Simulated scan of single mutants.
Amino acid sequence: MEGRGPGARGSAGIASTFVGQWIVVGHEERDADTILRMAGLATPMALRVAVTLGLPDRLLGDGAPVADVAAELDADPVALDLLLGHLATLGLVESTPTGYRTTAFGENLRADADNRLTDLLHLDRAGGRGELAYADLLHSVRTGEAAYPRRYGRDFYTDVHDHPHLRESFDRQMTRRFRDQLPRLVAGVDWSRFATIVDVGGGAGGLLAAILEAHPAVRGHLVDLEQTAAQARRTFHDRGLDDRARVTAGSFFDPLPAGADAYLLVDVLHNWDDEHAHRILDRCAEAARPTGRVLVVEAVGGLRADTGSDLAMLVIFGGRERRLAEFRALASAHGLALDTVTEVTDQRCLLDFRFQDDLR
């Protein structure tokens, strides 16, 4: 019976408790480390600074000594070496006998990589500048307002309008974002049922041009601000669509060309709070009456939206990825009812609205 008395059981119990506590503490430490890695700002900011300085392009080939690169960039050589050391741990650059050079992985950050990363990360382009508003996310959560104006003293669109290089990078970002999804957006909807389509805030015209090319009987009319409208004119001209595509320079807060069969809003409403979204829909409904349709293409909460996009819309624009019930509520105030919902890509849905008195 040795070893089976109360004392032995007590010792075993203490040992088990100790081991159990050690395991729990181990899990807690690992969890804490994971959370710290998730929260760390060193890597995301190092990537942005590297792109802003043009390091992935400067360090191609055999690379270059840190002192030489620092002199070219007017950077502190010691601080630059610290940055490159961290980029090396990420596999973006590697150390060589002559300094640092960009790896194959790091070449994804080159300016000519054509993958949107430069525009999204560069701190002096619309995407990279906009994401810095996350530093004031607390303000947005407390107030429901965009953080961008708090950081820069003006809203995103005013900033882009007043700085041509920001407008250029934003338009380029929007064009590239849709490029891979264009075939599905064009093929996934029966656009031929509309003789005329007004693309409201249609950017450089890539989507409308693709729709017109796929449906020779359809005519299009794009509305956007002057700088972007000029790009749309070039798009239509270069693709031989001048006879079927018109462009009007203007805002979607102003009266829109009336009488079209469909008014298309692609990634527009989620950039605005409810007050402004109502103003946009009011203009669309005003122009579409009595039988036109309003078509909304964007991510929908609970269907194709992700939580990161929700926060981006909030901090940059004061908007959000709305759910179907929210879209219905917005539209009903303008006499519009949601007719159909089509999941056209893995990121976006098409919401087809028609006037409530035209439900037949």
Rank of each mutant, 00 (worst) to 15 (best):
D254R: 14
V200P: 12
V200W: 09
H165K: 11
T235Y: 01
D180E: 14
R184P: 05
T235D: 05
H165I: 00
R151G: 02
V266I: 13
R234F: 00
D180V: 13
H221D: 06
F236D: 00
A187F: 03
V218A: 11
G188K: 02
E168T: 04
G240A: 01
V223A: 06
V189R: 07
N271H: 15
E226F: 08
D242Y: 08
D162V: 04
A262F: 01
L241K: 04
D267V: 01
M174P: 07
F253A: 13
H221R: 13
D273G: 15
R177M: 14
A209R: 12
V247W: 00
L269T: 01
R219F: 11
Q181F: 12
R154H: 09
F156M: 08
D155M: 03
A204E: 06
V223K: 06
A262K: 03
P257Y: 08
H237P: 03
P216W: 00
A230L: 14
L222N: 05
A210I: 01
V160M: 11
G240R: 05
V186W: 06
L137G: 01
V266G: 03
W272V: 04
F170A: 09
G240W: 00
D261K: 10
D190A: 14
L241Q: 01
D155G: 08
D274I: 06
T196Y: 05
I197P: 03
P149R: 11
S169Q: 02
G240L: 04
A230T: 08
Y152L: 12
P257N: 06
L264C: 06
A147P: 11
F253E: 13
D224E: 14
L138D: 11
F170L: 15
R154F: 02
R154D: 09
A232Q: 00
G203Y: 14
P257A: 04
Y148T: 06
T228V: 15
Y152K: 10
R150K: 11
P164E: 04
A214Y: 04
D274W: 13
G250T: 10
L212Y: 03
L241V: 08
D180L: 15
D243L: 10
A147M: 13
F194I: 05
G220Y: 04
H163C: 05
H276V: 09
A210Y: 01
H278M: 08
D199C: 09
W191P: 03
R239V: 01
R239F: 07
S140R: 08
Y152W: 15
L138M: 08
V268E: 06
V268L: 15
D254T: 14
H221Y: 11
E213Y: 07
T158S: 14
D267F: 05
H165D: 14
L212R: 05
H278R: 11
A187G: 04
A147Q: 09
H278I: 07
C284G: 00
I211A: 08
G202H: 05
L208Q: 00
L137V: 00
V160T: 06
R219G: 08
H278T: 06
G250Q: 08
F253H: 15
G203C: 13
R246T: 12
G188S: 01
G206I: 05
